[in-house]
Design a protein around this nucleic acid. Structure first.
Lengths: 172, 172
DNA sequence: TAATAAAAATAAGATACCTTAAGAAATAAG
DNA sequence: CTTATTTCTTAAGGTATCTTATTTTTATTA
């Protein structure tokens, strides 16, 4: 099996939840069209977005999927989406993979890790406004597509404050 | 070559800088004893710690090391340390590796990614006090070992404020 | 051991960002 | 088209965290 050429797709209506916080992830999702998000809900009931997954992206709770521990995140369709589903059972036996597959997985993990580290640098060292302009620079197509409140959640501010930021940017 | 059994070690005095922000990382460092840190300096001149690397940990700027782009971080010895050095040239040809090596790299990248994602969840959703107690729970040995100001930098607060947090915790 | 430097504690005032609340605008539904 | 729902904007007041400054404690060096 080639892990990246999954051809069976499933249609997910907007709003459907594919994984719940606390459950164990049986599946990972390759998005063919539409967009999913993963998010935590904190002890105050507030949502914090970890990842957007538009077309060509893969999304799951990696720890839950790989190690069968409770998921820290929800996964939900923020648009009607078509996804290919990869099952935990499909990848359990690491020895089934060819070298080329392993090399490819390596590259994907590495690139993901690089991006994730950049996000941490931003959260530690940048102001909310800088994180927002960084987001618009990095994901310009998502800025058009996503409601403000989701972008706010991703960069770690309230929607009200992001609205202030946008107004301030527009003024200059 | 087995990528994880490097036997030649080099002694690094406390305070030595092994990589500078903006430079291209030629090397990665496996710490045999002592402790290194990686950190950015933001446009206001403030330091933000990305990673501590005590014994058995590996540290580099992954993007810079893998893709020969300018490093976002400094790497510096915070204790006198012994390290094994892996050169970018040593790993450039991915096909030199055996399947077992690739599987092991995979696991390491994956675990690193899982930990990094948890850190993002904390930065997005936890208070400074929660991030501190989470740090002490996750890395109890480092709490003894590292000065407060470095822990403050890692969790994303000023040393003064972490001092307040500790006092408040001690009071209860 | 004394002298010096570095780290930590403490406190007062400042600011980035949040909370709450209300109204306006856009989108979806009937 | 009309209504209902969601999203966005705006504003006032509040809180977590920062800044600056001083003092105390701890660590380093002479």
């Amino acid at each position: 099996m080639n892990i990246i050429n999954l051809n069976k797709t499933v249609t997910i209506p907007k709003g459907d939840i594919l994984l719940k916080q606390g459950d164990i992830a049986k599946y990972g999702y390759f998005v063919k069209s539409g967009c999913l998000k993963s998010y935590t809900i904190d002890h105050l009931g507030k949502e914090h977005i970890m990842q957007f997954a538009p077309e060509t992206w893969m999304i799951t709770d990696l720890d839950s999927f790989s190690n069968q521990v409770p998921s820290l995140v929800y996964i939900e369709a923020i648009e009607a989406s078509e996804v290919s589903i990869i099952s935990n059972a499909d990848v359990k036996d690491i020895n089934q993979f060819e070298k080329a597959d392993l090399v490819e997985m390596n590259t994907k993990f590495r690139n993901n890790l690089i991006a994730t580290n950049k996000r941490i640098i931003g959260l530690l060292s940048a102001t909310a406004e800088q994180r927002y302009t960084n987001f618009t620079d990095t994901y310009p197509s998502l800025v058009q597509r996503l409601p403000l409140k989701l972008i706010a959640s991703y960069i770690g501010v309230t929607p009200e404050y992001l609205s202030d930021i946008r107004r301030k940017i527009a003024k200059n």
